[in-house]
Design a protein around this nucleic acid. Structure first.
Lengths: 204, 204
DNA sequence: ACGCGAGGTGACTGGGCGGTCACGTGTTGG
DNA sequence: CCAACACGTGACCGCCCAGTCACCTCGCGT
């Protein structure tokens, strides 16, 4: 998506441009983001930016793609290693947390991304969602077969529940109450334990 | 928040103005909404609008308040009637669904409301969240005392889980897959059953 | 020494916005 | 009949934006 002109840039400058874009999209959702602000921050001409990327959308898609590639590098190991369903989910979300800790700006970009309303990006967003759904469905089927998960639960329901809680966990990483990382990871674990065990005592 | 001039308006016109504002805030989150578009839709002068409301924020706060009052009228009965914790929660979210069905535009206003980033509305949003949290905490304590809910579960964790799933359920009402209302209500019920019973078989 | 092409530039266009205010209009009461 | 008032109006200000393009600079091969 970026032009050859961008690819050929001095790597240091290319990084500077990329970082500035990340900073912008971390602070503002796509609709309210501004190329003007980005180039002002960078101290380069607006025209240059338009030599690198066709338009604002192209820049955005590029940034989001790169950011998700980075995030993948945190999550993929969890999917590859062998462990039971519930442990894997805990690790999955805990890794999301670590990603957010390590790359707070990247993390904010992903959060804004979900809220994007822009029609021209609709397809792109849906594709990204699809990937997440697939991660889950694969895990889930395996868990049902291995007897870890009740077999009378509709897969779509299960996905919905995890997706909701996961999304909120991830967004919540932004307004962390002032505790320590250890506590945050424990919080994530507790939340997932509730999903595993339920709230009910079974009395009634 | 609206001026006396707005209150004194011919009720039909007042309604028309209100509806137009709802339509705008249903379509666009606050940051991207436009008074200009609203008055264009209404065929009145921009100046008139500014006689009714001090500025865009005041109009928005007014609309959101009214919308939530309407929503309250759907939810309050569920809180007042006597029933056990899990049933109440199911009713609560099912009523949210009915509200969304009956007032799709109002519903969209509430969805956008949560995503608002505007600093000057931060306090307002937090207050509204607080109300929702209180609803839940009250129910939850009662349920623990009555032995319906495990007593080793941190209230904040439980709230977090329900809040996440509830939020996503509510947003999801927008992109309903083309099924019938009955199915939707069943979907909500299933989701809440998962939270009640958990996913795990208990084997391990 | 020079022409050429690659890369960088920023003034400019056309558009949208929130908010203002000097002015028109129609009603009402003295 | 006129003054006071309430109400409606839309041109206008200042600001910000995406995107364009004629122009400039500079290094390199000839």
């Amino acid at each position: 998506m970026p032009s050859s002109r961008f690819e050929n840039l001095d790597p240091a400058k290319r990084q500077r441009v990329f970082d500035a874009a990340v900073a912008e999209f971390a602070q503002h959702p796509f609709e309210n983001s501004s190329i003007t602000r980005i180039v002002r921050r960078l101290g380069i001409a607006k025209g240059s930016m338009y030599q690198y990327f066709e338009n604002k959308r192209a820049l955005y898609r590029y940034v989001v793609t790169e950011v998700y590639e980075k995030k993948r590098s945190y999550l993929q190991p969890v999917l590859d290693q062998d462990m039971d369903f519930f442990t894997r989910l805990k690790r999955y979300y805990q890794q999301s947390y670590v990603f957010a800790q390590d790359n707070p700006l990247y993390h904010q970009v992903t959060v804004h991304f979900w809220e994007t309303k822009d029609e021209s990006l609709r397809r792109f967003i849906d594709e990204t969602k699809q990937i997440r759904a697939l991660d889950f469905t694969t895990m889930f089927h395996q868990a049902v077969q291995e007897g870890d998960v009740k077999d009378n639960i509709d897969e779509r329901i299960a996905f919905f529940v995890y997706h909701s809680v996961g999304k909120e966990l991830i967004e919540g990483f932004l307004n962390l109450p002032p505790r320590r990382t250890e506590d945050h990871l424990r919080f994530i674990e507790s939340v997932l334990t509730v999903l595993e065990q339920g709230l009910s005592t079974g009395n009634k």
